[in-house]
Design a protein around this nucleic acid. Structure first.
Length: 456
RNA sequence: GGUGGAAUAGCAAAGUGGCUAUGCAGUGGAUUGCAAAUCCAUCUACCUCGGUUCGACUCCGGGUUCCACCUCCA
């Protein structure tokens, strides 16, 4: 069965066919680097990382481009608040973002273009739009895209231009000829960072940078464009209209949008204070637990962040790792099994990771039952395809975030003492040691080969 | 108001016109000095009202509730 992807533009699953036989170009809207990444950003990172991994597993040569927005009103404001210069601020958050990605086992995009490195490309595109009569410079110096100059607008988000017009927020912006028009180039105010251009000193608007960088890296017409659902309108709609007006070609074949993260069934927002950064969550949950949590729901569904759900994710991934702890995956992998086939079918069905995970659980059960190292190797191999189970099981269990003061050395000495007590049938002492460790969230597992431990 | 999406067992979450999803939790058993892990068995489902059908949780229509976007947002 071939890969099917839900395309936002058509609202249905479509059989995926790349423009070039074995190559896929994919562009994902990345972060605006004025703050730490939160769990919603984590979802975009993990979801598209998983999508790219699967495309590669299918044999495609993928060019994965994810931009960094490093110039924007929020960045300027934040730098002003912090009394630091913009480069220092953005460099700091870009580093933090890369740290987060590494923790979540998100592979680096092939290209990570930054808006400020592509001002020239942006200028060229705006010039084309002005020359073709799709953009104009207003009295305030800003350059706007004229939405009504385009043949069509709204096909991605299903918006109707007339309805939009009627419902447009009343905004006092006399410079725009039409409230729907959006800015391509913002003229600089005093003390704002600016680049010289045909329209005077200024900086790019938000939407145009993605059009310029995407077409630069992937060509005028490419396979997949993605991002969070909230970008569908207006950001991606605007990207389509300005790109197609500038190039005269179709912009993107398949649009992929991932759903939101909610927190305790409330909309995540800073004003409500229910906003968690990746860094914060990693202190409480192993990053692989977070990755599992994000993949345990389909990428288009909303996902609810809560300690209950993170705990569930932890229990689930622990079950998979338990199988690999019991049966070490060090053998030739079993090929062409029903498990592998089902796994691929699930992933080919619009990247159905929950379904794929259920196959892994069935496989884990089989590993536990049969002690087959070949099946354990298969379990690891399939899980690796979605960025899971890459570490040693024992390391996973021992590296759970913990407040416990018990060092490994201390734990091992207690285990030794307990072994001695058990040998002498002093079970009250051995149970005492187990209870003490358990209070510190350390669990002991006895087997014929001795006693192992894990943090819970 | 407009547009789009969703309602599945205690919790989470897939899926299918008739056949156990899956994970966690619960119950009974095996195993264990006791546990844990593991295995076996097992209890809880498909918002509501109609329709189509031999048969619908699955298709169609009406309702109810919820969510997102329409403004910066992943």
């Amino acid at each position: 069965m071939s890969l099917q992807i839900f395309n936002t533009e058509t609202g249905s699953k479509e059989i995926f066919k790349s423009i070039d036989e074995n190559k896929v170009g994919i562009y994902v809207c990345g972060m605006t680097v004025y703050d730490f990444c939160h769990i919603g950003h984590a979802r975009v990172m993990v979801v598209f990382d998983t999508i790219v991994r699967h495309l590669r597993n299918l044999g495609y040569e993928v060019n994965y481009v994810r931009n960094i927005t490093d110039i924007d009103d929020r960045i300027i404001n934040r730098a002003l608040e912090n009394k630091e210069d913009i480069q220092t601020l953005t460099a700091r958050f870009i580093d933090a973002m890369h740290e987060d990605e590494k923790a979540l086992n998100v592979l680096c995009p092939d290209e990570e273009p930054r808006a400020t490195d592509n001002i020239q490309e942006i200028e060229v595109m705006i010039t084309k739009l002005v020359d073709k009569g799709h953009a104009y410079q207003a009295d305030n110096g800003d350059v706007y895209f004229s939405v009504k100059s385009a043949n069509e607008y709204g096909r991605l988000s299903g918006k109707n231009v007339d309805e939009l017009d009627a419902g447009a927020r009343v905004e006092i912006n006399v410079a725009k000829k039409d409230p729907l028009d959006f800015v391509l180039w913002k003229s600089a105010k005093a003390n704002e960072p600016a680049w010289n251009s045909a329209w005077g000193n200024g900086r790019p608007g938000w939407h145009i940078e993605c059009s310029a960088m995407a077409t630069k890296c992937l060509g005028n017409h490419f396979d997949i464009h993605g991002g969070g659902m909230d970008l569908t309108f207006p950001h991606h709609e605007n990207e389509i209209v300005q790109s197609e007006c500038a190039t005269g070609e179709k912009f993107v074949n398949t649009w992929i949008h991932c759903g939101f993260v909610r927190i305790d069934d409330e909309k995540m927002s800073k004003s409500l204070g229910n906003f968690f950064t990746i860094g914060e969550v990693i202190k409480k949950y192993h990053p692989e637990v977070i990755r599992y949590f994000l993949l345990a729901s389909h990428y288009r569904s909303p996902v609810n962040y809560s300690t209950e759900n993170l705990d569930l994710a932890k229990a689930s991934i622990s079950r998979l790792y338990s199988a690999l702890e019991l049966v070490k995956p060090r053998e030739e992998c079993i090929e062409n099994s029903i498990f592998e086939k089902q796994f691929i079918v699930a992933m080919n069905d619009d990247f159905n990771t929950p379904q794929a995970l259920s196959v892994l659980f069935e496989l884990a059960k089989e590993v536990n039952k049969t002690n087959s190292k070949g099946l354990a190797t298969l379990l690891k191999k399939l899980a690796n395809q979605i960025g899971l189970l890459e570490q040693e099981a024992t390391i996973f269990f021992k590296s759970q975030p913990s407040n416990s003061k018990f060092t490994e050395h201390k734990i091992l000495s207690l285990i030794a003492e307990r072994a001695e007590a058990r040998k002498n049938k002093k079970f009250s002492r051995s149970d005492e040691i187990r209870d003490e460790l358990l209070k510190n969230k350390i669990e002991l597992l006895d087997s014929s080969e001795g006693t192992s431990w894990r943090r819970t």
